[in-house]
Simulated scan of single mutants.
Amino acid sequence: MNAGNEARKRLGSDKASRQKTVFLIIAIVPSLLGYLLFTLYPNVMSVYYSLLDWDGLSGAVFVGFDNYSNMFKDDFVWRALYHNLLYMIVVPALTVLISLLLAYLLNNKSYKENAVYKVIYFFTNVLSTVVVALLWSFIFDGSFGMLNGVLKLFGLNMNDFYWLGDTSTAIWALVLPMVWGGVGLYVVIFINAMSSIPASLYEAAVLEGARPMTILFRITIPLIRGVIRVCVVFVILGSLKGFEIIMVLTNGGPEGATDVIGLYMFNLAFGKEYHNYGYASAIGMLLFVILVGAKLIIDKLYPEEHVEF
C-alpha cells in the first residue's frame, strides 16, 4: 500500500516537473531567440562589418583595423563626441532636477487638478520624437516662432533671429526639446517613488519645523536615491546614443555645430552623400564602448543602495 502511494507521488512529481520544464521552455525560448536574432547577432556582425570597406551593397573589402585608425584621426568624430559630452552633462541634470521638483510639488500638495497635471506632463512621452521636433521647429522659427514672440513681450526684440540657424545658439536651443520631451516620464516615476515613503516621516519633519526644501533634500531625495540613480543612467545613456530630435531639427547643422556621434554614424551609413557602412560600424563600436564605460563610471561614482523605511 505504501509502495503504491510512493509510486503515485513520484509520478505526480515527475508530471509536475515536466509541466514546469515545458512552461519554462515556452516562456523563455521565444524571448531568447528574439534576443539572439535581433540583439546579439547584429552586434556581433557589426564588429565584423567594422573591419570592412563596404557601402552595404557592393562587394566588401577586408581592411582590418584601418577604419579604427582613421576614426581616431577624424576631427568630425571628436567634434561630435564633444557635443555628446555637453548634452550628457546638461540634459540629465536639468531633466532630473525639474522632474524631482515637479513630482515633489504634485506629491506633497493636495491640488484638485493633480490627476490632470500628471496627464499633461506625461503627454510629451505619448508623442513621437518627430512630432516633438516639428513642434519645437515652429517655436524656434525666426519669423513667427513662439520663442521670439514671448521674448518680444518682455522687451527683447530678436529681429527674426532663427535660433537653430546660428552656430552659437543651435546646440543650446536643442537642450530645450530634449528636456521637455523627457521630463514627463520621470515626473511619473518620481511621484510613484515618493508616494511609497511613509507619511509619518513627513509629519515628524513638519513638527520639527523643517521647511519644504529641507524635507525634499533631507528626506525625500535620500529615500529615493535608488530610483534617481536608475533615471540618471537612463537619461545619460539616452543623451549619448539619441539623435532623432537633432536629425529632424538641424541634421547636425549649422556647419556641424549640433552634430553628435549617433547622427554622424547614421549619415555615414545611410546618408545621401556617404555610404560607408564599414566605417559607420567602427564608429558604432566606439559608441558601444563609450556607453559601457559610462555605465561603469556611474556604478562606481553612484553605487546602488538599498533603503529601508
Rank of each mutant, 00 (worst) to 15 (best):
V206I: 14
V96L: 11
I245F: 03
L100Q: 10
Y49A: 08
T95D: 04
M194E: 02
F62L: 14
S46V: 09
R8S: 12
L11C: 04
D75P: 00
L147C: 01
Y48C: 08
I189Y: 05
M88V: 13
R10M: 12
I139V: 15
W54S: 05
K118A: 04
S69Y: 14
L185K: 10
A103F: 03
V132N: 02
V63W: 07
P254Y: 09
G242R: 03
Y274Q: 07
N107W: 00
L100W: 05
A280G: 03
T220N: 01
N70L: 09
Y121I: 06
L52E: 09
S281R: 07
V232L: 14
I236T: 15
N192R: 03
G165C: 09
L216K: 03
L164D: 00
G184N: 00
A80H: 11
V227C: 06
S281A: 15
G145R: 02
E6G: 01
I221A: 09
P92F: 08
E6K: 12
P177Y: 00
N192A: 15
R8M: 15
G284K: 06
A60W: 08
L286G: 05
K20Y: 04
V47C: 08
D74R: 13
Y87D: 07
G4A: 12
G271N: 13
Y302H: 08
A27S: 10
R218H: 10
G252F: 11
G64K: 13
M194D: 03
E305I: 10
T258N: 05
M1P: 08
N43H: 03
I219K: 05
F138A: 04
T214V: 06
G56I: 10
L147V: 04
W54F: 09
Y302A: 00
W54Q: 10
H83C: 08
L94A: 13
T39H: 08
V187D: 03
S200F: 01
N159G: 00
S69C: 09
F234M: 12
F154W: 15
I89S: 00
S99D: 01
I219D: 02
N251R: 14
L127H: 05
D166M: 02
N148V: 02
L301I: 15
F140S: 04
L176V: 15
A170F: 01
N107A: 14
M88N: 09
I215G: 05
M1A: 13
Y279D: 06
N2D: 15
A204M: 01
L249D: 03
M88A: 15
L100V: 14
G271W: 14
A205C: 05
G253N: 10
N43E: 05
S196L: 10
L268K: 07
T124V: 13
Y117N: 01
F65P: 02
S99W: 03
H275F: 14
Y279W: 11
L237K: 03
G12F: 13
V292W: 04
G262M: 06
Y279I: 11
L151N: 10
V179G: 01
L86S: 08
F140T: 10
